[in-house]
Amino acid sequence: MGKYRVVHYINQFFAQIGGEEKADYRPEAREGFVGPGMAFNAAFGDKAEIVGTVICGDSYFNENLEAATKEVLDLIKSFEPDIVIAGPAFNAGRYGMACGTVASTVEKELGIPAITGMYVENPGVDSFKKDIYIISTKSSAAGMRDAVKTMAALAMKLAAGEEIGASAEEGYIPNGIRVNFFEEKRGSERAVDMLLAKMAGKPYTTEFPMPDFDRVEPRPAVKDITKATIALVTSGGIVPKGNPDHIESSSASKYGKYDIEGVFDLTESTYETAHGGYDPVAANQDADRVLPVDILREYEKAGKIGKLHRYFYSTTGNGTAVASAKAYAAAIGKELVADGVDAVILTST
């Protein structure tokens, strides 16, 4: 098998053309490696080789973003690479933005894997960490040796189409995708080590940084509830007896939509729960305890509400990924709006 063809993207400084005074240097392609490319070639061994280097000044790139991206991309394409490496940019902000743009555009438009490397505080990290693998580096070029080693290893895996491990194993900056892997020590021992460090005021790294949850503006209140159509939605897994849609007891892959026209009470013989995350006995005896159809029918008859919507929607919230729940809810919401529903009662277990 031949060697993988690598194209390396670097700025004017690492190409030894000049510093800030040369930052408006226009895109240029050279055969073979330039500057730090030598170290990469050494790290690749006989697996890969830098066939070409594309150089661009940081100011030129960032001030002419669209044009420069296209020029650089065309030059990269001309070398027919298997993989593209940009940088590492360490803590240089404009270089980081350039590397991130080049690498992500190469993946998106050329369909060729691309990686870069940056210091975690480089503004390029937040902009691109979800799009491409960014190897975590030191803040200055003093960290070149380590950066090259880690970047070369990941680049070879990507070129070969191998499965990419967790960020902690591969050395990339966490990108929000959680990947399983086996640690050296068991969890309890890691917890003891972490606690000892925390109590001593020494540095430690949490294995799961706390998330930020986004918010939605509250919708206006219902003006006249006696004329409103109200729909019932539940994550408590209430389904017709026998679970006709086979909604999973945990990690639901779907939601159900059920017609309750003419249904006045959910009974033990007609409805049950498919939810695997709680004691199901009470809900199976009387599903109104989770989905209050009986009382809403009563209120409908008494004119306290306009109407109970003809369908209810149900899924199991148990172990179901937020992204799935989000997608189901968005689809349900759209249907309810189209059906002229005015408000929703959502019950959870």
Binding site: S167, R178, V179, N180, F182, E184, G187, E189, F208
Partner: peptide, 8 residues
Amino acid sequence: GFNKLSAR
């Protein structure tokens, strides 16, 4: 924490 399995 009985196992070595983890995630990042």
